[in-house]
Amino acid sequence: MTEFTLFRHTPGIDPTLHIWGWEIPVYLFLGGLVAGLMILAGARLLIMRPHERQAMVCCTIGPLAGLALLSLGMLALFLDLSHKLYVWRLYLIFEPTSPMSWGSWILLLVYPALLANALTHLPETIPALAKRAPMLVTISDYILARPRLVVAIGLANITLGIALGIYTGILLGTLGARPLWSSAVLGPLFLFSGLSTAAALLHGILVFTTPDAERPEFADFLLSLLARWSQARPLDTRIAPTLAQADNSFLTIELALLGLLLIGHLSSTAVHQQAAWLLLTGPYAAVFWIGVIGLGILLPLFLQHLELQHRIRHTLAPSLLVLTGGLVLRFVLVNAGQASHWAAMLN
């Protein structure tokens, strides 16, 4: 029989940590997604020859979306800061032991890398823009004329993408005070979750733009508007199966990593076991099993498997499921992590 009484009611701390609201999970999700987009876009630069890249969704659309999403993510991160006026302090110092510090510097490098990637094929992808800003053509020509620069941009996107993806996991993973987070698996887990959401996003964009009798009318209307404005050629949809294939691989790895995380905790100390049970059977179990595992991983895996077998058509459903699953994963891990505690050992 043990009674433990804590005489403290600090806001944000008691009864369990709740310092991070929606902002941090959203930021982690968007950061992972952008990381995935960078890796896919970077890989595309390296693997494909220039004429193959044109009009592909990875090309330009991915990095452009990445820039926008990252900005949203940074906004969420900024909103979370409680001493906002001092945010510039991040850039007066590099703290090697602080993933937050790495993160702020990585983010600083991510923007130019993404931008360079986007600019490489921007004029061909969105001719209308190039007409208005001839600079864009000059830049694109400059890059494309230098194959080694293209390789450098590709490598930079892959490297920074991996760094960004892993960092979003390490950020939590180094906070050993929260048993659920204290695992090295979190880095790769967030990286592969980021990759799966990125592939799902691109796949979704392709599906959305593919002409289809059953496509809703508003989509047709929207797309025609976009096409008229951008004067772009239709996206090359042949890559859709490749993306679905990639997405399924990422999802499988993500599932394995989640398993590893939990097995790691279950075979560790009592507090880590308690942390794992928070997800498995505890207050977060419903969201974890249904939201993350069921709808976020298994169902899209199955649907995309059917797509690849040509048993069903490619639809938006798997993409939306994977994206939502990725977001829910961040929410569940951030919230359950804050609830996990060493208190059991303190009594």
Partner: peptide, 27 residues
């Protein structure tokens, strides 16, 4: 040092003793 703190709260999460809090002024 309050003048260096951005209020990211990583340190709150990092402390196994829950010894820290965010001062109403933000740090």
């Amino acid at each position: 040092t309050p003048e260096k703190c951005i209020g990211c709260k990583a340190c709150l999460a990092a402390c196994p003793y829950d010894a820290r809090f965010v001062h109403p002024k933000g740090y």
